[in-house]
Amino acid sequence: MPKIQVTLLTGRSLGQGRAKEQGKLSELYLESVACCEVQHEDLQNIGLEYGNNIRVTSNHGSVVVKVVAPTQPLPRGVVFMPYSIWATQILGSDTEGTGMPTYKCIPCTVEPAIDEKIMSIEELTKKFPRKRSRS
């Protein structure tokens, strides 16, 4: 399987900001944030087209999202994901003593995941460990 090394940025986008206000369970929200922007040549390197699913993997985790064209041009080797529960799946919790996790400039790999499914918000929240049964 082709796989490329990239630097991941997470951040706000107008689409995410607008969709967030429509509701996080909305279709629009999923469309707007369960995605990763990859630059055209980088995408060609792994033989994919926009709209395919990809797997983004860091030292801390892995997530499947849709690959989309950058809304704002990216340099080669840099990919972008809007802030969301999909992006946080692969972020580390170490803050290097600052309180702030690293949300930008994260070394990752990107590979095709055409046949894999993007998890829904409900599925992702169920993935988290639940506590011992309580009253």
Binding site: G61, Y83, I85, R130
Partner: peptide
């Protein structure tokens, strides 16, 4: 606030496992 969406995975795991 919505830390389950915004916090890194490991921190979130801890958050969901406490009351």
């Amino acid at each position: 606030s919505d830390p389950v969406s915004n916090f890194p995975y490991k921190a979130t795991c801890n958050l969901t496992s406490i009351p």
